[in-house]
Design a protein around this nucleic acid. Structure first.
Lengths: 337, 337
DNA sequence: TCACTCAATGCACTCGATTGCATAGAAAAA
DNA sequence: TTTTTCTATGCAATCGAGTGCATTGAGTGA
């Protein structure tokens, strides 16, 4: 059909005007007479004129693309965040460029490069588990690109962030476990020094203290993946020191934990309670269904994108760091008493 | 640090050369002397010169961005495909722009517009369930943008596609159910006229015929979402016509089905077998674990991206439509005998 | 010494837009 | 009528690259 996209110049030629006039007419510049404006806009519409974004961006140095770095795509929480980001970005007319670091430091660095190369006007990032160098993130800032961390924030970099209230989430969950009679509550967590892990641990410990339960370090395990779950949990269940509850860093570990606890002959929740973290799809299909902490990923995505876009457009006036906290919600189901 | 990105012109000025020489030197043009080339490249490296993608693309009309339209992001299968696309795109130095139609025709149309506006050089799309007008997809082609459908292909448009072998997947699953003694195999499917549904139905029917089981239309139900599952399945289980197996269009429905079947007092798989489709995370956490058909989403993403990029770069020489078929694999677990 | 070749580089235009400044022409003021 | 003041428009430069063609100058052959 329309072989080539038509340009401002084409319109100008057709209407016997100069490209500048056409440009102004399209942008509703008041210097242009109403007749000319209407004529130009009508012609543009009829001939399906489309602004060449590349040229526009090159000229104006504006760029309505934001980059997103996620450690994992096939993942309930992160894909929820992604959906939230996408939703907000779309409503504000931004495009999103997605990079997948796959929990790999090197790919994370490469992702940052890619996004800087693409000259996005802002980046939303959640770091990989094992990232402990921050030069690449610093480079984003050095390139004067706005940066907002979400969920897995990077402590080494001083910038805006949106996080879930991990402390309160963990506190409430463990508080609930204790209230329902659990005394030996194990914590299956991540080895990482990321704030999401340390904050939850603080919530866990404070909740125990509230119930006058002594924090027992031998009940805290590094176990945040499928592989670790299959290795660590059987060991715990075979030990002489069997917990009466598991508070898990994510739903997957909780689900596998549930499976193994049952296969060892314990009843859930009568003998052992289990609580996850995220509230993903899988929590509704286990038997019994999993009690968990809803992380509101979609909302986090919304908020992070909103904050970033406000920064880009200069609408966020606060000079220092903006830190948004997303509330969590304890979802009680059958895996706890 | 480096306030502004440095440009070819800056390098030229610094080395007392013309921008054209610098450009050629950077591109290893043989017309440039080795000394000059090395000098330029060294300077560029030292000063962290970065090609301005916008300018490059404007000039060359090349654009290394491909757009992706998915009906759903928070979804095991689609996020797997996305990961596959991202992986392949990255290795070929393409960026991906993601649009989320959220199973909504209007958003799908808008997504197409967005991607055309962004002047992506190709689009990978999977249509929404209820899309039955195709003008927007046709417009992609009219704009001379390469288009490849994946999974949920659009029958109204004549273009490349990558699909899973739904027929064989369904055939093998139902064949297996029948082999293990099931005689009254219900099919919980989608009402949509999409090929993924009709092909699976053909597989289902052919497998039944192979085992001399008469196809009973009263055992075929529209049930492809959570809500429908909670409505339709109890009705089936209360009827006088209770199946001894459920073949479900996706894992979620299968998981909910499993739950309800158990809650109605039936044993799985002794009384009723259940089989899903996708092989997502949830199949491993149900009790018993779900038998399902692996759709190889990651591979589909890889293949679709590969095909699209080959089209863009003119490496796919076949003139007609290219149709790739991704093999499925029956994963046997505890929910079937 | 002169013409010719060829390697290395520069000039100037282009991609498709935006924008500061100049200008034409009409209307208003003197 | 002349000057002033706008209003509406055009000119030309610019963003950061790439590229056809012209140009320079050293080297070659006669």
């Amino acid at each position: 059909m329309n072989k080539k996209q038509i340009t401002l110049k084409d319109i100008a030629k057709a209407l016997n005007l100069s490209p500048s006039t056409v440009s102004r007419a399209m942008n509703n510049n008041p210097a242009i007479s109403v007749e000319t404006r209407d004529q130009v806009q009508r012609y543009a519409e009829e001939h399906k004129y489309k602004l060449n974004t590349l040229a526009f961006q090159l000229r104006t140095k504006r760029n309505n693309t934001i980059g997103v770095i996620v450690p994992e795509i096939v993942h309930f929480f992160f894909s929820s965040v992604l959906a939230g980001i996408q939703e907000e970005a779309e409503s504000e007319n931004y495009n999103i460029l997605i990079c997948h670091s796959n929990e790999d430091y090197k790919k994370e660095v490469k992702s940052v490069e890619t996004l800087i190369d693409a000259r996005v006007s802002g980046i939303l990032a959640s770091q990989s588990k094992n990232t402990n160098q921050y030069n690449h993130f610093q480079e984003i800032i050095d390139n004067e690109i706005h940066l907002v961390f979400f969920d897995r924030i990077c402590t080494g970099i001083n910038t805006d962030k949106v996080v879930v209230d991990d402390y309160a989430g963990a506190f409430n969950a463990v508080d609930y476990l204790a209230k329902t009679g659990c005394k030996r509550i194990a914590f299956l967590t991540s080895s990482s020094q990321m704030p999401i892990a340390s904050n939850r641990r603080m919530g866990y410990e404070d909740a125990l203290r509230k119930h006058k339960i002594v924090v027992d370090r031998s009940l805290i395990f590094t176990c945040d993946t499928r592989d670790l779950a299959f290795k660590v949990i059987p060991q715990i269940l075979q030990s002489t020191n069997i917990p009466d509850a598991f508070f898990c860093i994510n739903d997957e570990v909780a689900a596998y934990c549930l499976q193994m606890v049952k296969s060892f002959g314990f009843r859930v929740p009568e003998d052992i309670s289990i609580c996850g973290f995220t509230n993903g799809y899988i929590t509704e299909v286990t038997d019994p269904e999993l009690t968990t902490v809803d992380q509101h990923g979609h909302e986090m995505g919304n908020e992070a994108a909103k904050l970033l876009i406000n920064r880009i457009e200069g609408k966020e006036t606060k000079n220092g760091i903006v830190s948004k906290l997303i509330k969590t919600e304890l979802i009680r189901r059958g895996s706890t008493r």
